[in-house]
Design a protein around this nucleic acid. Sequence first.
DNA 1: CGGCGAAATGTGAGTGACTAACATTATGAT
DNA 2: ATCATAATGTTAGTCACTCACATTTCGCCG
Lengths: 188, 188
Amino acid sequence: MTTLASDTKRARTRQRLIDRGLDLIERQGYDATSVAQIAAAAGVTQMTFFRYFATKEQLVLEDPYDPFLATGIGEQPRELPPLQRAARGIRSAWRALPEPEQPEIRRRVRIAARTPSLRGAMWRSTGNTEAAIVAQLTGDGTPPFDARAAASAVLAALVTGLFAWADGEVETLGAAIERALDVVEARP
Amino acid sequence: MTTLASDTKRARTRQRLIDRGLDLIERQGYDATSVAQIAAAAGVTQMTFFRYFATKEQLVLEDPYDPFLATGIGEQPRELPPLQRAARGIRSAWRALPEPEQPEIRRRVRIAARTPSLRGAMWRSTGNTEAAIVAQLTGDGTPPFDARAAASAVLAALVTGLFAWADGEVETLGAAIERALDVVEARP
DNA sequence: CGGCGAAATGTGAGTGACTAACATTATGAT
DNA sequence: ATCATAATGTTAGTCACTCACATTTCGCCG
């Protein structure tokens, strides 16, 4: 069992699928690019593609989200309503995070932003993060209904910010996130 | 051109597809129910199904949303931040609306809430409403980025409320919407 | 160094959503 | 009764995705 070498090969094949796949999709569009085509471009079979990615969507939607975003919520003052606690918590968690490698993420997000079917899928892919936020909020005593409403609202704003960033509307990923959170946190 | 009579037949076939389709899906689950099965149950061909519904999703997702929800936003005071304007506007538009026929909507929403692939599709199906809200907000002078962030956040909370209602967690549709808006509007 | 075993990949057949071109039936107005 | 048109059917195809089974690759151990 040669874990190291085979892991290396696995990783290489996987990366080839991603590189060739994103290339093709950027050139032709997501819907116009077939899995067979991507697999062929990576020198591999359709079947192998599906051994690495359960669906065609997942090639693009390596979710840029992270349940880690929820970790800052517990530290927020309890007097704040859940929406503010979530927003502030995410802001502080984000600031504590090292800048992620943006070029790859940006390719993916730009594709997702331009492909209607993927915009919906993106929403679904935030499921883990949403659950983590909800768990933090309910742990603080927020009723589940309110926790879910607040978590989904904050994440929706974040996704919107991501799309704006991928479109070049905002300079940096950080700026997009901060601004999206500003909108959510704004007080009358 | 017998518009009236043929429209009647069209409407009947369509309704048969909806009734039989929702029946089957409720019993077997969305993924386990094939279009061919639904069509057969409605005494019709697969091809005919697709002449009435572009996709299988659309049988369930006759969107319960309505761009009409955006109409109340213009009346909100300009000093409010966009998130509050959107939430208050939707609240007043909703109150002005006659109670929709809930049983049918509830069937659909319950199915959507239980089917992961449909949860994502539901998000996409709010597109029209979101655009209407964004238009209202930008018309009031809100920058597009902020308008989109606020609109998506409010709608996300609304969808969450809808799901809770379909799950029986909240008594009435109206209560679910009001409460979701409460969470979004809450001030620190 | 030669073969063993597991990981990686391939093959072939099948299902189900969806599309397009073309043929057929049904229906209501004249 | 007839005729245009709406409604439906037929057939054949593409593409995402699955399953069962066969084959290759490759490091490791005797």
